[in-house]
């Protein structure tokens, strides 16, 4: 293990975890309102990134329909994402009302394939390198750390905090706090929490369950778009952005499926685990850094089956 890399990797890991946390939040949101685990989350992220890229001018060949500044493109993409969210509820979820939960969950898996297909048809398979990122991946704050007793404790005697990574992190944390407040203190939040526990009961209380689902998918769409934009800033736009879900899933399970703080902490932990493994000699194992989150997940679930912050099942004996 190359110890001088560790402090830098810890910082990178935590900051990368921010994006994961944001994406995890979107999945938790849908789970909390409808008990559906959204396997299409990664593809919503990818779609959000593509939409933003398209609204910001696409390939830039001169004949594009839109040429918006990035902030406007993000808003435009979010509006489309809201529309898609409601559309998913209307066309895919509502006909499934009353069906077993597993059927609905598998439906999201199908949805992800549809999204991938549509994106490929609309934008092609080539990765797009011209995402109008507000930060270049190489922009970074440099914090010099002098050697101690003549030995460096960090790589190149400085710590780097990438602008893009830092921005992602801050956006993710702000979004998470907003979510927690929204769920805890607004009427819609209460309706969502109630609906997640018992659809039939929520209906008998006059809650429009279909509208609650629609809103949660719409909000999840916005979150996914934000996540997509942040990811695209670091790595460009491509269909493979959707694989981020594979890393977000352990983050959610780690944190506890129903918990927003859990999603954040889970995201950060997974980011951390990946980067630390990347700095270690375990890297000789193929894809070690992708496996690391799942090993961490395994350990935590053995110790706490409901995840770090998950709801315990209430059982009165």
């Amino acid at each position: 293990m190359n110890w001088v890399l560790v402090p830098q990797q810890v910082i990178n890991g935590l900051l990368n975890g921010g994006t994961l946390a944001l994406i995890a939040l979107g999945i938790v949101l849908i789970f909390k309102s409808s008990e559906v685990f959204n396997f299409a989350a990664g593809h919503m992220v990818m779609l959000g990134a593509f939409l933003t890229w398209m609204f910001a001018g696409g390939e830039g060949t001169g004949e594009e329909l839109f040429k918006l500044p990035l902030w406007a493109a993000v808003i435009a993409a979010s509006i489309v994402a809201i529309g898609i969210g409601f559309l998913i509820e209307r066309l895919a979820l509502r006909p499934m009302t009353g069906q077993p939960l597993l059927a609905i969950i598998l439906m999201t898996l199908g949805l992800s394939q549809v999204m991938e297909g549509v994106t490929t048809v609309a934008y092609g398979v080539q990765p797009k390198g011209n995402f109008p990122a507000p930060f270049s991946p190489s922009d970074a704050f440099n914090i010099p750390v002098p050697p101690v007793n003549g030995a460096s404790i960090v790589f190149l005697d400085r710590l780097q905090i990438g602008h893009a990574r830092l921005a992602t992190f801050v956006v993710a944390i702000i979004a998470a706090v907003l979510f927690i407040l929204f769920f805890q203190y607004t009427k819609t939040g209460l309706a969502m929490r109630a609906t997640s526990e018992n659809h039939e009961l929520a209906q008998s209380m006059g809650i429009k369950v279909s509208r609650v689902f629609g809103w949660s998918w719409a909000i999840a769409g916005i979150v996914a778009t934000l996540g997509g934009v942040l990811l695209a800033t670091l790595s460009g736009v491509s269909v493979s952005l959707s694989t981020v879900a594979l890393v977000a899933f352990p983050a959610i399970l780690l944190g506890g499926l129903e918990s927003f703080p859990g999603a954040i902490v889970g995201g950060l932990l997974v980011g951390l685990a990946q980067e630390i493994v990347r700095a270690s000699t375990v890297v000789e194992v193929r894809n070690a850094s992708d496996i690391a989150p799942y090993i961490l997940l395994l350990i935590i679930l053995v110790l706490r089956p409901e995840g770090l912050f998950g709801q315990r099942r209430i059982e009165r004996i």
Binding site: A191, R193, G206, I314
Partner: peptide
């Protein structure tokens, strides 16, 4: 049937959500 994970008062509030 209750919304088990909600508090007593939150349960009452759900009745008036509409």
């Amino acid at each position: 049937p209750l919304f088990q994970h909600l508090t007593v008062e939150e349960n009452l509030r759900t009745g008036a959500l509409f």
